[in-house]
Amino acid sequence: MTAIFVPKKAGTSIPLWIILPSILAGLFLLDILTTQLILNLGGMELNPMMSGVVNSPFLHMLLKIGILILVIAVAIIAEARVKGSGTALYAVLIVMYTVVILNNASVILPHLLAG
C-alpha cells in the first residue's frame, strides 16, 4: 500500500493504510447513526436496496462491517497491482460517504432547530 505518514508525535507516524480505512469506518458509523436518527424522526430510507436493512440497526452495522472488509481486501489487491489505486478507492468512497453524511445532516438539522 502507498505509505504516506501523518505525524503522531516527534519520531512516530501513522501509515495511510491505517488512516484511510479508519476514516471510512467512522463515516460508515456516522451513516448508520444519522440514518437511524432520521428514521426515528419519521423519515424513510430513500435507497431501495437498503430500505429493508436499515430497519435493523444490527443488520445495518453487520452489512457495513462486511462492506468495509471487502473494501479493505479490494484496496490491498488493487494497490499490489497498481500503485495508488487502493488509495484512490478509499478517496472515492470517503468523498461519497462524506456527501451521504452531509445529506443526512441536512435532513436532521431542521428537526433539531424546530424542536
Rank of each mutant, 00 (worst) to 15 (best):
A105V: 09
S51W: 07
P57E: 12
Y90W: 03
L68D: 08
N47P: 02
I4E: 10
N47A: 11
T35E: 11
K8W: 13
P110T: 12
A78Y: 00
A88M: 03
L33G: 07
L109M: 01
V54H: 07
T35Q: 08
L46N: 14
L93N: 04
T2M: 06
A114C: 07
A114M: 13
G11E: 02
I65E: 09
A88R: 06
D31G: 03
I38Y: 06
G11S: 00
L93Y: 03
N40M: 13
Y97M: 05
V107K: 13
L112S: 04
T98G: 15
V6D: 07
G86D: 02
L68N: 03
L89I: 09
S85G: 01
S85W: 01
L102M: 14
E79N: 02
S22N: 11
Y90S: 01
I108P: 00
L41P: 04
L37F: 08
L27W: 01
Y90M: 00
M61H: 08
K64Q: 05
L63I: 13
A73F: 13
M49N: 08
L39C: 08
L112I: 14
G43A: 12
A88G: 02
A78K: 05
L39D: 10
I94V: 06
L113Q: 09
I69F: 14
S22L: 14
I76K: 12
L29C: 00
G11I: 07
P7K: 10
G84R: 03
L93K: 03
M61C: 05
I72Y: 12
L39N: 10
L30S: 11
G11D: 00
V71I: 15
L33R: 05
P48I: 00
I14M: 03
S51F: 03
P7E: 13
L29H: 05
T12W: 00
P57A: 12
L30N: 10
L109R: 03
L41V: 04
A3P: 01
I18Y: 08
R81G: 03
A91V: 05
G86E: 01
I65F: 15
G115Y: 07
I38A: 02
R81A: 14
G52Q: 10
I19A: 05
K9T: 14
L46H: 10
